[in-house]
């Protein structure tokens, strides 16, 4: 009874700022010719997205507290209309796991899909519905954890 009461009070209180500022941006690649005449690929805010376009999702977790943040894990569901592009998940200092259902996470070779005939087969990258980046080291104050992957619009 007492615990329930405390919980209710906690919920009613205005939300208190956390220690991480989480930001998601969508970008696409654009080929530009730089001043020396070289072709260069640069990332621009997501533009002209049609079926087949690859979008680069970048998630940053910026430590806005004075204390380090440990056990930082960024979980991102892949948008339903998009397919994860195999091998593109990148998060420096993180261990990357995938999930087909958002519940069970694992390395690509641990994910199996059960077919209608009861046979199991390895999951394809375009079947991953969640990506989780688990950062091994604490994020120091003022530092940032960066997670990035590509997904293609179906």
């Amino acid at each position: 009874m007492l615990s329930t009461l405390i919980l209710s009070v906690a919920l009613a209180a205005p939300p208190k700022a956390g220690c991480l500022e989480l930001k998601t941006i969508a970008q696409t690649e654009e080929v530009v010719i730089d001043e020396s005449g070289q072709r260069r690929v640069q990332l621009v805010p997501a533009a002209k997205i049609v079926p087949g376009t690859e979008v680069i999702w970048t998630i940053t977790a910026n430590n806005v507290c004075a204390a380090p943040a440990a056990n930082v894990a960024i979980d991102n569901p892949v948008p339903a209309e998009m397919s994860y592009v195999d091998g593109t998940a990148l998060g420096v200092g993180s261990q990357i796991a995938f999930s087909l259902d958002g519940q069970r996470f694992g390395a690509p070779d641990q994910l199996q899909v059960r077919e209608a005939d009861g046979e199991s087969r390895p999951a394809r990258a375009d079947e991953y519905r969640h990506i989780r980046f688990e950062f091994k080291n604490p994020i120091a104050p003022g530092q940032m954890a960066i997670a990035r992957y590509r997904a293609k619009l179906k």
Binding site: A61, A69, A73, D75
Partner: peptide, 13 residues
């Protein structure tokens, strides 16, 4: 097409 990530973490264990 919408996307929203979630981060979990701990401070001082």
């Amino acid at each position: 097409i919408n996307n929203r990530a979630t981060v979990s973490y701990s401070v001082g264990a």
